[in-house]
């Protein structure tokens, strides 16, 4: 049976003596379809049933555009900060030996494990005008909580591991000999870093950046507590979906969600493209 099937489908599946392909792939596809694809298709279908002109009107609604702009710009700034600190963190963890390195390495993953709502209320308690740090920043005229700056802080906190964890394994594989060669050819340390090491890390950095950006655009739990949620200033797109749902304006919620879903697909496509490009160019992907 198994051999008959593999012979019949030989053109798209390499034959194998290992059984279970039909069962496992069948289950995988069925589960994927039921849990992910049908619900997402339902969203697309609801969105399509709005009609083009309604859809465009809902998406071009000033408040929707405002929210998308807030989400995108804060996520972009946070991702850039995360790239800088993420690469430095990965570097320190891979290259330097210092007491407590293992602990620091574990701490980097904390934002993955800590629930977003917990991070949200904790950051708010820190940065609110009467908070731990907020009360010291307020006299200096710096307001973090309830401003876009608060959103950026939250997104930096939750996005850090994405960059570190994509860059770190690639960094580990960089052969020291290349650096030695560069140094012996007279390159300064900075030249070696910027001309030799960083270019090799570019795909990993871009992937980490894209992952952090995608996460930041869609993030909800950690942001809503600290953002202040002022329309056109600090109201993020996912929150606007929730507000529209609460108004039982399913049309508007669906339209915003569709735009965000398209952005997610683009990000995913971009990540895959970077990986494919890096495989071709560097012969490895992280």
């Amino acid at each position: 049976m198994a051999s008959a099937r593999s012979a019949a489908r030989w053109h798209w599946k390499t034959p194998s003596v290992i059984p279970g392909f039909g069962l496992t792939l069948g289950f995988t596809l069925a589960y994927l379809t039921l849990i992910i694809l049908i619900p997402l298709a339902g969203l697309a279908w609801r969105s399509a049933s709005l009609g083009w002109s309604d859809f465009v009107r809902l998406v071009l609604d000033p408040r929707t555009l405002g929210a998308l702009k807030v989400s995108f710009s804060t996520a972009l700034i946070a991702a850039v900060v995360n790239v800088i600190f993420g690469v430095v963190t990965a570097w320190v963890l891979v290259r330097y030996n210092f007491p407590g390195r293992r602990i620091v390495d574990a701490i980097v993953d904390l934002p993955f494990a800590i629930p977003t709502a917990v991070a949200g209320i904790a950051l708010t308690a820190i940065y609110a005008p009467n908070g731990l740090l907020g009360s010291h920043l307020a006299p200096l005229g710096i307001k973090v909580a309830y401003t876009p700056l608060g959103i950026i802080v939250a997104l930096i906190a939750i996005g850090l591991p994405f960059v570190v964890r994509t860059v770190q394994p690639v960094m580990q594989e960089i052969s020291r000999e290349v650096e030695e060669a560069a140094a012996s050819l007279g390159a300064s340390r900075l030249q070696t870093i910027f001309r030799v090491i960083l270019p090799g890390l570019t795909p990993a950095i871009l992937t980490g950046f894209a992952l952090a950006l995608a996460r930041g655009i869609g993030e909800y739990g950690s942001v809503i507590f600290i953002a202040g949620n002022i329309p056109f200033v600090s109201e993020i797109a996912p929150l606007l979906i929730v507000i529209r749902l609460e108004e039982f304006d399913y049309g508007a919620a669906t339209a915003i969600a569709t735009v965000m879903l398209v952005i997610s697909f683009l990000m995913l496509f971009l990540i895959n493209f970077i990986q494919a490009w890096s495989r071709r160019r560097f012969g490895h992907a992280q």
Binding site: W12, K13, T14, S16, I18, F21, L25, T28, L32, I36, L37, L40, L43, T116, L211, A214, R215, I217, G218, E219, Y220, G221, A237, P238, L239, I241, V242, L245, A253, T254, A257, M260, L261, S264, M267, L268, N272
Partner: peptide
């Protein structure tokens, strides 16, 4: 196993990572 469309399947499995949680509920 090796089969065509494997990379695409992996991408689909990754999809929930890049979808906003709010949309996952919606």
């Amino acid at each position: 196993f090796d089969f065509k469309g494997k990379a695409f399947l992996i991408t689909l499995i990754d999809l929930p990572f890049s979808v906003s949680p709010v949309i996952s509920g919606l």
